[in-house]
Simulated assay, not measured.
Amino acid sequence: MHQVIAANLRVGGVDMYVLFDSGSTTNGVSHEAAHIAKLDVFQLKEPMTLQLGCVGSRSRVNFGTRSSVSMGNRNFPCFLDIVNIEHYDVILGTPFLKEYYDS
């Protein structure tokens, strides 16, 4: 049985189901969640290949956004790739965990 750390948090002012993934080298938000939260999406200068946490074996990341993640009364600014993910609205990986672990 796999156990995960997940929570309902506010991202961009909207409640989202968030996975904390220490094995992910990126932070990501699904296309649908970015649309619902009306996040300001922009094209990345250098697209990247995403191999974990996506629908299928690999996906191309072409877009990103900046948003805040709210936990309790604290807001954490965060860059998020726009990615094809299942089961979660947002995946917060090692970039988020490293930046805010001691906060």
Rank of each mutant, 00 (worst) to 15 (best):
K38D: 08
K38S: 12
K38W: 14
K38G: 10
K38C: 09
L39D: 02
D40L: 08
D40T: 12
D40W: 07
V41F: 07
V41W: 12
F42S: 15
F42P: 12
F42M: 15
F42H: 15
F42L: 14
Q43H: 12
Q43R: 15
Q43I: 14
L44F: 13
L44E: 13
K45L: 14
K45Y: 14
K45W: 15
K45N: 14
E46D: 14
P47D: 02
P47W: 03
P47I: 05
M48E: 09
M48T: 12
M48V: 12
M48G: 10
T49I: 10
L50V: 11
L50H: 00
Q51E: 14
Q51M: 14
Q51P: 05
L52W: 07
L52H: 09
G53I: 03
G53D: 09
G53V: 06
C54F: 05
V55E: 06
V55G: 08
V55N: 08
V55W: 04
G56I: 01
G56S: 04
G56C: 06
S57Q: 08
R58P: 01
R58W: 13
R58A: 11
R58T: 12
R58C: 03
S59I: 01
S59L: 03
S59N: 01
S59Y: 01
R60H: 04
R60M: 02
V61M: 08
V61I: 10
N62Q: 10
F63R: 04
F63G: 04
F63E: 08
F63A: 02
G64S: 09
T65M: 04
T65V: 09
R66I: 14
R66H: 13
R66M: 13
S67D: 05
S67G: 09
S68K: 14
S68R: 11
V69T: 04
V69I: 12
S70R: 10
S70V: 14
S70G: 10
M71W: 13
M71P: 12
G72P: 02
G72L: 06
G72Y: 03
N73R: 07
R74D: 13
R74L: 13
N75K: 12
N75I: 06
N75S: 11
F76E: 05
P77Q: 05
P77A: 06
C78A: 07
C78L: 10
C78T: 12
F79R: 05
F79W: 09
F79E: 13
F79C: 01
F79H: 07
F79A: 03
L80D: 00
L80G: 02
D81P: 01
D81I: 03
D81A: 02
I82L: 03
I82K: 00
I82V: 07
I82P: 00
I85P: 00
H87P: 05
Y88E: 08
D89Q: 02
D89V: 04
D89K: 00
D89A: 02
D89G: 05
D89M: 00
V90I: 09
V90D: 00
V90R: 04
I91A: 03
I91V: 12
L92P: 04
L92E: 01
L92C: 07
L92T: 00
G93S: 11
G93E: 10
G93L: 03
G93W: 05
G93Y: 10
